[in-house]
């Protein structure tokens, strides 16, 4: 299977989805990323990225139950797929391998 390439923001959202395992939905992802990155992120960008990743097969979704909150709307939870995990792994491997090639000398002592 071809592993699709992912962009930086996609990677961050995918990581969050993976980290929050089965409990990730729009607002929780937004809150977590805002906390980590210390900048505000609009919910619409999260929605767009999630949509794109569903299309690519990196995540899959399911609906939660109806509650009194959220105007009675169900939450849509996202779970990372095997392909998504592979993409993260690949990304991580590439980064680490390149990182390891940095000569110590380059930073001076």
């Amino acid at each position: 299977m071809n592993i699709p390439s992912i962009g930086e923001f996609e990677e961050l959202v995918l990581l969050t989805v993976a980290a929050q395992h089965d409990e990730a939905y729009g607002v929780s992802i937004q809150a977590s990323l805002e906390g980590k990155l210390e900048k505000s992120i609009n919910i619409s960008s999260i929605h767009v990225v999630l949509k794109r990743m569903v299309d690519k097969g990196l995540v899959k979704s399911r609906y939660g139950g109806i509650t009194q909150d959220r105007g009675g709307r169900r939450k849509k939870f996202y779970v990372i797929t095997a392909l998504g995990k592979a993409a993260l792994d690949q990304q991580y491997a590439i980064r680490t391998s390149i990182y390891n090639q940095i000569p110590k000398i380059a930073f001076g002592e």
């Binding site: 729009g26 919910i43 949509k51 909150d69 959220r70 105007g71 709307r73 939450k75 849509k76």
Partner: peptide
């Protein structure tokens, strides 16, 4: 397809 998710999330933020 997206209305319920988006509306819910926006509603939650609003709350």
């Amino acid at each position: 397809d997206y209305l319920e998710e988006i509306e819910g999330n926006l509603w939650e933020i609003f709350d």
